[in-house]
Design a protein around this nucleic acid. Structure first.
Ligand SMILES: [Mn+2]
Ligand SMILES: [Mn+2]
Ligand SMILES: [Mn+2]
Ligand SMILES: [Mn+2]
Lengths: 221, 221
DNA sequence: AATAATTTTTAGATTAACCTAAAAAATAAA
DNA sequence: TTTATTTTTTAGGTTAATCTAAAAATTATT
């Protein structure tokens, strides 16, 4: 069945919200991420339900159907593969690729995306550490911790970020933080929960709790 | 000023028609290429004129303005660079790339297209031999001849095709005809204007006038 | 349990891009 | 130079996606 860019974006947003919770997704939550009004969302949810891509009963919130989930994952796959292409092959920085990928994710050609996947060497994660669903739409669970949840004196490795915004990513770059960076947590300040941390064995610096919340790490020791 | 995919496609079509003639372009000609109705074209021409991208007076036909020409050329540039990408990097055949490029040509990012250009080694022509406008929108005039216009006994080189359709390109592939092929014209039959020609020094075969009309060549001897 | 606040849906419009059918203008033929 | 044919435009509608304002349902608070 034919699908529009707008419908694809709705499915993607519902998918994103569903990852954070097992509850039904509210009209307002969708409206906020779609940057539109609740009334418009209601219209669209009815249409998506009609097409069988979501389960929706008015006033009860919305969930993706199996079919809807499949579509959403294929868009996520395209978005993240294109992000890898933009960084690895085109030489963009990780804070420059999200907006372009928002456009490229709607290009329709299974052949193209599978060839692209191969060309990129079947990457498992995108430039922000987010997992890339495979051809069958299976998303490897990576299960990383937020840096804000780690105790002092631990050593960990930066595996991803919980946010794609350019301002945030540019700040990380300024802090010399990129995928794979080694983090030695020296101390966590009780007052503002800021973290005193050594990055790649350099002299330690302070990182705010707000930033730490959006950094995903794997504990090494 | 914001531009829609549809508006971009109209400008591209008007540009294509303008290449073949110095006359004003008719509503019907645009309708045919856009696969839409004349009434819809009239609506759109008024809108494009409003935005300053075409010069249009009712019943008088349409021409691109300087600004419109610039936009059209930037879309042609994107289309052809993406086609090179699809063939050279993704491993598609020349008859598989046009439809995908129709989608990719609307991706908006000057940075991306210039990086892509560099990545591809600043190609001068696309996989069909069509010239690629440079960053400034300058389209190198290539001035090739149609194979159907060449006299017997001449030798020439296949430089491009006058049509992107998959059926046509697949036929050329079957005939072992691709960009750069050497053509020795043995004889032209008066009856049906078919051409008896040797391709890359193989034993000569017959090529219909219809096919020859869509093959662009450079005369070598 | 009644009332207040919040969330969600409906009602009614708007805009872009398209359509069909009819009218008007331009071009060709008699 | 009338008349016929073709081309183009106008008139009036449709569909997708959006909006604002008002009504209805749900949830939270006395
Ligand atoms: Mn992204
Ligand atoms: Mn990403
Ligand atoms: Mn093409
Ligand atoms: Mn081409």
């Amino acid at each position: 069945m034919a699908i529009s860019f707008t419908e694809e974006n709705y499915l993607k947003v519902i998918h994103r919200l569903s990852e954070a919770t097992s509850e039904d997704i509210s009209t307002n939550a969708v409206a906020e991420l779609m940057q539109t009004k609740a009334a418009s969302v209601t219209d669209m949810l009815r249409k998506l339900a009609e097409k069988g891509w979501v389960n929706y009963q008015k006033y009860q919130g919305v969930r993706l159907s199996v079919e809807g989930e499949k579509i959403a994952l294929s868009i996520v796959r395209k978005h993240r593969l294109w992000e890898v292409f933009l960084v690895d092959k085109m030489g963009f920085n990780w804070d420059e690729v999200h907006e372009i990928a928002e456009q490229l994710e709607h290009i329709e050609s299974d052949q193209l995306i599978n060839k692209l996947d191969e060309y990129l060497g079947f990457p498992k994660t995108d430039p922000h550490g987010d997992p890339i669903p495979n051809k069958e739409g299976i998303l490897p669970e990576l299960a990383y911790s937020h840096l804000s949840d780690i105790k002092a004196t631990k050593t960990c490795k930066l595996m991803g970020v919980a946010q794609d915004s350019a301002v945030f990513l540019q700040l990380l770059t300024k802090l010399n933080l990129s995928l794979g960076a080694k983090l030695d947590i020296q101390e966590i300040n009780e007052f503002d929960r800021s973290i005193f941390v050594s990055i790649n064995d350099a002299s330690p610096i302070f990182i705010s709790h707000e930033v730490a919340k959006n950094i995903l790490v794997k504990i090494l020791a």
